[in-house]
Design a protein around this nucleic acid. Structure first.
Lengths: 208, 208
DNA sequence: GGGCGTATAGTCCACATGGACTAATTGAGG
DNA sequence: CCTCAATTAGTCCATGTGGACTATACGCCC
């Protein structure tokens, strides 16, 4: 059972695919867009990783090379576009990562790209996450209880107590998000996103 | 200005150094101890990374090779011990990472190893962190405000709202921890930790 | 007592990361 | 009008990561 392309997707890979859903792009434009959108809150943006990632996605057949063009004596720009497999890969990855409670870093990416899925599916996935969070919380609680019974020094448990506090906060946030999603008070979905004039304007500004 | 050993420390490197503060050990015993203590909550424990990390620490002069011994026809075991530089490196690293609000993963390690520092210093470092968290929170808030002014679609802001919720929760947790530390209601410090019979017992069980 | 799974202790390698580097071009200041 | 900094677009390489693999020994079940 060979690991398929989606399993090998790194956070940067997902971001690249997600960007290409907005239109064909060359790598440098991706960097500018990500910087403009402060995506460096979610992952570290470095040339090395980006260009390497793009070439991996290409080898995996998730993106196509549209053509190399150059202006004057500037370095060449290779423009890429999504393949069908690439378009699927993003949503498959988000479907897998959105309910997971390990890998907090990946979840942030998945959440940021969750607008690529339709509302009902996101609601389902987040409900699954809610369940996982509750389980995790239960495990934490009796992990703490048993640790105290065994006289594990309290200083070691401090990190676990923090984790529990954050977990509770996430549960509260998640419930409020689910409410807004189900009440339709929050616009959602790929089309709503693509139609946002803000994003169209930002992309135009990022091209020259 | 060459990057020194502390800058190159990875989370796994810090864990290894911290373990060696409890006594000399061979790598495999480290794995067992970390597994027994559920340190895989903090980082992924794999043989490849561990052994590579140990040899890096050795090259950097942070640990010494005590000797290779073997029993019967079993694989050899190389036992390591901390050098003075290595002992310093842990606390230097914790001092640097404890106040930082970027790199959440590193912070969890730093917090888990903060008992290697004395109480007053930890209080200072966590106060600094508190300040950084407050700043971060302020930046988040007006980042959100300006994004809404610019009509950035609400679905994109969901991740930022989550981050803000977690940040508030961390602030509350941190305040309660600081209280307990200052009220001396929480035992603290390297000696308190080393004297814990729970930990001595666990180490003994991990040896054979 | 023969086989089979797991524990012991570690090596090896493919791939991912991120910092350093290149090289031309535009813009802004004195 | 000349220079210096920043921008544009991308390459290269040292280091780090984690999964796969090796090989012996012990336990235990039938």
């Amino acid at each position: 059972m060979k690991k398929d392309a989606v399993d090998r997707l790194t956070p940067m890979g997902v971001m690249v695919l997600a960007l290409l859903r907005e239109g064909d792009m060359h790598p440098y434009e991706m960097v500018r867009l990500m910087r403009a959108r402060h995506d460096d809150r979610l992952l570290t943006i470095t040339n090395g990783t980006l260009y390497h990632t793009v070439s991996r996605l290409h080898r995996a057949g998730l993106i196509d090379e549209l053509g190399i063009d150059r202006e004057g004596n500037r370095p060449e720009r290779t423009t890429y576009s999504l393949t069908d497999a690439g378009r699927d890969a993003v949503v498959t990855w988000v479907r897998r990562e959105l309910p997971r409670v390990d890998r907090p870093a990946d979840f942030r990416i998945a959440l940021a790209e969750a607008h690529n899925l339709e509302r009902p599916e996101v609601v389902d996935l987040l409900r699954a996450r809610r369940g996982a969070l509750v389980d995790d919380h239960a495990r934490h609680r009796d992990g703490l209880v048993r640790a105290r019974e065994k006289n594990v020094p309290e200083q070691v448990l401090v990190e676990i107590e923090r984790q529990e506090a954050l977990l509770k906060a996430e549960l509260r946030w998640l419930d409020s998000l689910l409410n807004r999603l189900e009440a339709q008070s929050l616009p959602w979905g790929p089309t709503a996103f693509q139609n946002s004039d803000r994003y169209r304007a930002q992309r135009k500004a990022a091209q020259q």
